[in-house]
Design a protein around this nucleic acid. Structure first.
Length: 417
RNA sequence: GGGGGAGUGUCCCGAGCGGCAAAGGGGGCGGACUGUAAAUCCGCUGGCUGACGCCUUCGUAGGUUCGAGUCCUACCUCCCCCA
């Protein structure tokens, strides 16, 4: 199936992680004869990573599992510049405080996928702010800038497309690729890192780093990129009505996270099982053979396994149980997401309209009205037809809650306190 | 520096002779059908209101008009041509 001899490349290739590799034979041989140190950069533009970052995280995970040493590089420094790759517009520039805060949120996620030193593993984490923030401009130009040909930089897609579309490309952004190349060299100096991985849009940036490594240190660096993952319908991963699917539990609950994966399209199940779970391939192949309605069993496994990686096995099992009760048994699962309301609020009479706004299911009462006209709102599984319907104590179930639903899939329990 | 063009609904693209809450599409959401899938079909896609209606929106700020996205002025941003 795979032409690679090393476990590392074999696993990545057979699970669908590889798009392009520079000098595959040499990297393959190196992976067999030694422990490779490789890294992936993550930006810190948001307080959490989302599903879109899962793919690179899994690559680092497998790297460690196959006996190598992964480094997660936090872009504390480069986030202050902004990557022009594939972006139509310039990225917002964040303040140092924002970045520091985002870094803290992101850091916790990695520990679930990688074993760092404190956990007895060899994975590392670095922050390029450590070397970028103190750079001296003149020194940098003389030592690093001399090796970059503007002629060549202009030919890179990230730059060329901007120019062709006549979009603004600031000097600041233009320098992003230089800094990323420098990161690679710096990680080589500090950790002996010789491999950079990333999404396919990072190829150009990574290759720059390879060149710089050869010129500065006569060292051989490698690039490995992953394909751009979209759903079979062509949508980008990780976006839903409610926004991005974040990995931090305080932003997206394990239940919601489980639901995200449960709703995977049929055509994506096998591919996602390989990419986003650690199930063995023969098991995945067995699940992928399921057809029609039976494939739902595979989706549940995908959801539970993917959730277990991020939120832990217990939370994943509970999410699965909640879903089973809600969708299959039609019973009230008390573990559904819960929204608390003041008891007095309910006794005074709370309109259905207000309640759904409170849940953030809808943005306005007007939107709630429209949903009612379309038959999309339910209270305790009964479709709401009256726009002026009020919620009262009489609506409380024996469990002391009111179940509110938008559509078939989104449910929340309203709990008086 | 001179000349020309553009900026539209807080998701995006895009029409818009002075009467416009503003065509159309994509995306999204809800409904039907299903398997919590896909495809298909139907509906919705500024805020408040039971409703008449009121309020807020077309780069920004003024102005002309009973009335301005639409006309005028200045400014901001972007693009093109000349220098």
């Amino acid at each position: 199936m795979s032409a690679y001899k090393s476990d590392f490349l074999n696993v990545l290739a057979s699970r669908g992680f590889i798009h392009q590799v520079s000098e595959p034979e040499a990297l393959d041989a190196l992976a067999r004869s030694s422990t490779i140190t490789g890294y992936i950069g993550f930006d810190c533009t948001a307080p959490s990573l989302h599903v879109g970052s899962l793919l690179p995280i899994m690559m680092l995970h497998w790297m460690q599992q196959t006996g190598h040493r992964p480094i997660a590089l936090m872009g504390g420094g480069t986030t202050r510049v902004g990557d022009p790759s594939g972006k139509d517009e310039s990225r917002k520039i964040l303040t140092d405080e924002d970045i520091a805060q985002n870094l803290a949120g992101i850091r916790s996620v990695f520990a679930k996928f990688l074993k760092f030193e404190e956990a007895g593993g060899n994975a590392g984490m670095a922050n390029n702010a450590d070397w970028l923030n103190t750079l001296n401009y003149i020194d940098f130009l003389r030592d690093i800038g001399r090796y970059f040909s503007v002629n060549r930089m202009l030919a890179f897609d990230s730059v060329r497309l901007r120019l062709e579309r006549q979009q603004e490309l600031s000097f600041l952004e233009f320098n992003y690729m230089v800094l990323q190349a420098y990161d690679f060299v710096e990680l080589y100096r500090r950790y002996g890192c010789v491999l950079q991985m990333g999404g396919s849009d990072q190829w150009g940036n990574i290759v720059n780093g390879i060149d710089l490594g050869r010129r500065l240190h006569n060292a051989q660096f490698f690039a490995l990129t992953s394909p751009l993952i979209t759903t079979s319908s062509g949508a980008k991963m990780g976006k839903t009505a409610a926004g991005a699917v974040w990995l931090n539990a305080d932003l997206v609950s394990p239940y919601q996270y489980w639901q995200y994966w449960r709703n995977t399209e049929d055509a994506d199940v096998a591919r996602f099982l390989k990419l986003f779970t650690t199930l063995p391939l023969d098991e995945i192949n067995r699940l992928a053979a399921l057809k029609d309605a039976e494939i739902n069993a595979a989706k549940k496994i995908l959801a539970t396994e993917a959730t277990a990686l991020v939120h832990g096995r217990a939370a994943a099992e509970q999410a699965a149980a909640t879903a089973r009760a809600t969708f299959e048994e039609g019973t009230l699962a008390e573990t559904l997401p819960t929204q608390e309301v003041a008891r007095t609020n309910l006794e005074g009479g709370l309109s259905v309209l207000e309640a759904f706004v409170l849940l953030h299911f809808v943005m306005s009462k007007g939107e709630a009205r429209r949903h009612i006209r379309n038959g999309g709102l339910r209270v305790n599984d009964v479709v709401v037809t009256d726009e002026s319907r009020m919620l009262t104590r009489a609506d409380l179930t024996p469990e002391g809650v009111i179940k509110l639903s938008l559509g078939r899939k989104r449910h929340v329990l309203l709990k008086p306190v």
